[in-house]
Simulated scan of single mutants.
Amino acid sequence: MSAFEQYYVEVLRFLTRKLRDHDSAQDLTQETFSRALTLPPGGDVASPRGLLYQIARNLLIDRYRSSKRQSHENLEDIDESCIVAPGSWQPEAQAESSQHAARLVAIIEALPPRCRQAFVLHRIDGLSQSEVAKQMGISTNMVEKHIIRAMVACREGSASGQDSKG
């Protein structure tokens, strides 16, 4: 079975979750495999799956940067006097968001290693629980327990951060 047959649906699901647009995800999935096929021959690829995910992530980043550039170019046509920053752009909201993100990162880093690995693979990398179980060599039930434990820790950490604000 080729890497295409083995990972196409998986990469497509990953990109669909990230983009929330199936058509765009199909385009980026095709581009991912196209770029993988154009890599110079002779390079040993230890993990074809890892390579495909890295290419897909890079394409997501390129797409994000491109959309930011386009939105900045469009802003040049707008009269600056009518621009009011939304609340999320205000310094206080940005600082609060940064503090919340830092708390979550600290909570995730403090998790036991296997719990953290399962949580990151599922919630950050977008793998299904069965895919995480297969990759980690544990049962799906154990993956679910790890994810629940991590989610509870994140919620408790977020709630205690909210309580300490005011």
Rank of each mutant, 00 (worst) to 15 (best):
S160I: 12
G161C: 12
A106K: 04
I108N: 01
T32V: 05
D21K: 08
Q135G: 08
K145P: 06
G87T: 14
S128N: 13
M151A: 08
T32A: 06
T16C: 02
I108T: 09
N74E: 15
A85P: 06
R114W: 14
R13K: 06
H122K: 02
L28V: 03
Q162V: 05
R69E: 14
D21Q: 11
A159P: 11
H146P: 01
A95Y: 15
K68I: 05
A36S: 13
S97C: 12
D77E: 14
C82M: 10
V132E: 04
E76K: 08
R69G: 07
L60I: 08
H22V: 05
H122G: 00
R49V: 04
I138P: 05
C154W: 01
R65F: 01
V11H: 04
A46F: 15
P91L: 05
H146A: 04
S97A: 13
R35L: 05
L60V: 03
R65M: 05
V120Q: 09
R20A: 01
R116K: 01
H122F: 04
S130F: 14
R35G: 06
F14Y: 06
K68M: 09
R35Y: 04
V120I: 14
E5Y: 13
G166A: 15
G137Q: 03
E96F: 15
Y64D: 12
T32H: 06
Q26D: 07
R103T: 09
Q129V: 14
F14T: 00
A110C: 02
I78K: 06
P48G: 11
T140H: 04
V11R: 01
Y53I: 12
E109C: 08
E92G: 05
A110R: 09
Q6P: 07
H122L: 01
N141G: 13
I148V: 12
C115R: 12
L19Y: 01
A25M: 03
Y8L: 00
S98Q: 07
L28R: 00
S139T: 00
S130Y: 15
P112F: 11
C115T: 15
H22C: 03
L60P: 00
N58M: 13
Q129M: 15
E109R: 10
I83G: 09
S164Q: 11
T38W: 11
I78R: 02
G157R: 06
A36R: 06
S130T: 15
L59R: 06
S98R: 10
Q135A: 11
E144M: 14
Q162Y: 00
T16E: 08
A102S: 00
G161N: 10
E5G: 13
Q30T: 11
V9W: 12
G166Y: 10
S24L: 09
Q135L: 11
S88K: 15
V143G: 02
P86Y: 10
Q117I: 04
P48W: 10
L12Y: 00
R65E: 03
I124F: 14
R103S: 05
